[in-house]
Simulated scan of single mutants.
Amino acid sequence: MTELHEAEEVSSTAGRPLTRRGEQTRAKLLEAAEHVVADIGYHEASIVKITERAGVGMGTFYLYFDSKQTVFEALVVDLNRRVRHSMAAAMEGTGSRVEAERAGFSGFFRFTAQHPALYRVVREAEFVSPQMLRLHYTRIVEGYIAGLEAAQGVGEIDPGLDPEVTAWALMGIGELIGMRYLLWERDSDGRPPVDLDPDVFEAMMRFIQNALTPPRRAESEES
């Protein structure tokens, strides 16, 4: 990067929105940080490794981030934003709450398969930046609660369920199913799956549907 280009990006980050070029450079650094942290962990990662992966100079890094921790925290926010977008986009246009759950989980698992770093980054946040760990989960849960409350209001799911507890429980199901059947799974050549096994997905959704269905409706469906 030339000194002129660096100077242009400095002015764009000084309290004003980034230029398109600046946004692209920042995104490139976050993508590099995602790969580096996923490969070797936060403590072994370094700004040098991140900039080398991104193909930018050290000076460029400091135009966007103050330290390794600030880029890590920005990475947590970025991954959180993208996984929530994947889920919301998948849920758009669905009818019932169970259909929304199915679509949302499908979006989550697709994102997880494409970005397995999400797991390591979130786990590392517990020790590197606990407040970011909490932010990651609470941002997902907040939208979840609103959706569950709306579904209770129209009688789609069990009115006796606590929406907040249910939201945390559902999020836990998705995270651990993804860990077991996406993050840990490998084929005979050692390659990870590109999506969740359909049989696993259906077994999970049957459990979730039974948990959410109002008691009277569940009884009528069984009879």
Rank of each mutant, 00 (worst) to 15 (best):
G59L: 07
S46D: 02
T2I: 11
S67N: 05
R102C: 11
S223M: 14
R84Y: 03
M171E: 05
P130S: 12
A151V: 03
G147L: 02
L148M: 01
A45V: 06
A150Q: 13
E31M: 08
G172K: 07
E92L: 09
G59V: 10
P17F: 09
Q209W: 06
Y119L: 13
E3L: 12
F72L: 08
L118K: 02
L196R: 07
R16Q: 15
Y144C: 07
E185R: 11
A88Q: 03
V48F: 14
A38G: 14
P116N: 07
M1L: 11
F201R: 10
F207I: 02
A7Y: 10
E92K: 08
D78L: 01
R186L: 03
Q152D: 00
H5A: 15
D158W: 08
V10D: 14
Y64S: 06
P198T: 02
S188T: 14
E44T: 10
M204H: 01
V200S: 10
P163E: 04
F61V: 08
G190Q: 07
V10G: 09
I40Y: 07
G190T: 12
G178S: 00
A54W: 12
E219V: 11
L135C: 04
H35M: 09
R134K: 15
E8R: 15
D78M: 03
A113Y: 00
G172A: 04
I208F: 08
S106D: 14
I177Q: 01
L182Q: 07
W168P: 13
I40K: 12
P163N: 03
T213Q: 14
R120I: 11
F207T: 11
M132I: 00
S86Q: 04
E222N: 13
S96G: 08
L4C: 03
E142F: 01
V56P: 09
V77S: 15
A218M: 14
E31G: 04
S96I: 00
E52Q: 15
P163D: 00
E126S: 15
G178Q: 03
L133Y: 14
G107Y: 03
R84T: 07
P17T: 05
R81V: 04
R134I: 13
G107N: 03
R97T: 02
P198W: 00
Y181L: 04
T166D: 09
M171W: 08
M179A: 13
R120M: 09
S86E: 03
V194W: 01
M171I: 09
L75V: 10
I47P: 08
A33F: 01
A125V: 08
G95S: 05
E44A: 10
D195Q: 13
D187R: 10
M204L: 02
S106V: 06
R191N: 11
E9T: 09
T166V: 05
R217M: 14
V200K: 00
E202V: 04
E156M: 06
